[in-house]
Amino acid sequence: MKRVIHYLRAINAENMKEWRIELKYKPDFFRQFFAPFVYLLPYFLYGVALLGGRFSEHLQSITGVADMIAYTFIGYLIMGFLNTACWAMGWSLRKEQWYGTLDTVFAAPVPRWVYVAGMAFHSTLHQGLIMVFQAVIISVFFAIAFKTTGIGVVLVIVALMVVGLYGLGVLIAGLTIGLKQWWVISEALNTLMVVVTPIAYPLAVLPVFIRKISLVLPTTYGVMGVRHLLLGEQIGYDLTTILFRLAVILIVWVTIGMGVFMMMDRYGRKKGFVSLY
């Protein structure tokens, strides 16, 4: 029990440290709240130009949702969590190396995954804060009316998806130990998952073989579940199935991620990669 408390405290210390460092760069910190909003606008306007407005009969016929902006925005929020897993967690060890603190952190009497978990915790809070902020701004700006009755289930779905994505994040963090140009993998995985996940389109528009890949990603169930609950999208799965599959994916992804991380940690210490980093 004492050990568990130590690890939890270490995870929180990591989170607090990151907040403190981020808040030392105030302009960049506040930029993060508005920049994604600005990135999103051109896509909304592009959609409006194509459709002649924000509502689409075709989108409604295949998803049950006519509002293109609301539909895309949910996907965009989910994409934020994916980016967090790929970049913030994957980036964590490399960033420590740049600070010069990696050896000191790795010499601490906690398993090394605790450090990455601390980064994940911080990233989730960070991304969650940005997500809520953007959701409020976008909802008001575009007058989007989200359903609020299923908000509790939405939070459960997002939580399961995020923890599933931790598996991916910790896997990438592990790979960075052995690979200098880790961002190539991170970028590739991130891009592939954005395409394969039905971020801005329904699952039905993906080719059948890609759809099969899509169904092992937590983001697919995350985006479908959240859109179903907040916008009433017709997704072809009931909520129990979504929650069950997310739970299974979470277990599989976290197990694989932790396995790869621990293997790479040992490999890195054997080969001296951490020292050479």
Partner: peptide, 14 residues
């Protein structure tokens, strides 16, 4: 207790 890496073993922004 390991003292290695000198002054770089700290977070300079903190």
């Amino acid at each position: 207790g390991v003292l290695t890496g000198g002054e770089r073993s700290l977070y300079w922004k903190l």
